[in-house]
């Protein structure tokens, strides 16, 4: 423990005094203010003269204003936060000759990666909580609604899922920083994998699904074929952390959503009118719907971490 807490404290101090953190934070804060303002304006206009529906507060997070919703922004940009915080964790210390010095102090070798990973996770949590607070504050001002207890729980759950999602990318970039001696290589590898998993997997999923289970193959019952095609596509895209996260967070933020699949895209007005005819899902049920996705996200993070651990423990440290 002594090693972990020393490394953790050092790493936290480094994060909070670095330009990297300041720039990242400024960027995120700016985007959250703008998106939630847009969302707030959109909501306000469409709610004009209508009785305030339930869960309007949560809509601040998933209403697409001019560009994208907050949930979409984190899904897209979150990995970059993890990567920026982690891509040079170990190889920078190696390059500067400080790694060997730390590892010849009486600590366990894994204390170094554990302490650094935990510091990264803390930093991510602080960032996300601040974003949610900024948006909530704006929401209060713009819409004049106070979040209910359930909405607060849902937001907390959303933060937890997002922390896991970004931590996966942190773990992955730390793995690359152990694996590659060059800082530029580890940065590039992390970004390449991010682009691949986030964009090409979903594109590739439909291509592959069409190959494996074509939807309009001759001589097959077409309904069955379409269902099979969709299943395959689903299965493949589950290997993308981004689609795992998008599904989980969208369900948590939107109580009206009863599956992880959004079959129809709805604007706020449609959502509200749909809501008049159906009851929202209780939070416990929402959690039941998304927990497999959360488990997979956590498992992915743990796998990353386990590999980092193995590689680091077996490596010869010369600098």
């Amino acid at each position: 423990m002594q090693g972990i807490s020393a490394v953790y404290r050092k790493e936290m101090a480094d994060h909070f005094s670095s330009f990297r953190f300041v720039i990242l934070f400024a960027l995120i804060a700016m985007v959250s203010v703008i998106t939630s303002y847009m969302a707030g304006i959109t909501l306000k206009e469409s709610l004009e003269g209508v009785a305030k529906p339930q869960f309007v507060f949560l809509m601040l997070f998933n209403t697409t204003g001019a560009m994208f919703s907050m949930v979409q922004f984190v899904a897209f940009f979150g990995p970059l936060i993890g990567i920026v915080l982690g891509f040079d964790t170990i190889n920078r210390e190696r390059a500067e000759g400080t790694l060997i010095k730390i590892l010849t102090q009486p600590i366990f070798r894994d204390a170094v990666i554990n302490g650094k990973f935990l510091a990264g996770v803390t930093t991510i949590t602080i960032m996300l909580v601040s974003i949610v607070l900024i948006i909530s504050g704006l929401g209060l001002i713009l819409l004049g609604v106070v979040p209910g207890a359930e909405e607060i729980w849902r937001l907390l759950l959303y933060i937890v899922i997002s922390v896991f999602y970004i931590s996966f990318w942190l773990g992955l970039s730390i793995l690359f920083s152990i694996f590659f001696r060059s800082i530029a290589t580890s940065a590039l590898a992390s970004v390449a994998l991010w682009i691949f998993l986030s964009f090409f997997v979903s594109l590739g999923a439909s291509v592959l699904a069409d190959m494996v289970a074509p939807a309009n193959a001759p001589g097959v019952d077409s309904t069955e074929a379409i269902v099979k095609n969709i299943r395959v596509k689903e299965g493949i895209s589950l290997s993308s952390p981004m689609s795992l996260y998008t599904k989980a967070s969208a369900t948590v933020i939107d109580p009206m959503r009863k599956t992880t699949e959004a079959l129809v895209l709805m604007g706020p007005m449609e959502k509200i009118s749909a809501g008049r005819f159906q009851n929202p899902l209780p939070i416990g049920q929402s959690v039941l719907v998304v927990y497999p996705y959360i488990i997979v996200l956590i498992a992915l993070t743990l796998v990353c971490f386990a590999i980092s651990y193995l590689v680091f423990m077996l490596q010869e440290i010369r600098t």
Binding site: E96, G97, T98, I100, K101, T104, T319
Partner: peptide
Amino acid sequence: PENVGFYG
């Protein structure tokens, strides 16, 4: 160590 490093 040979060429000891520090946090600048």
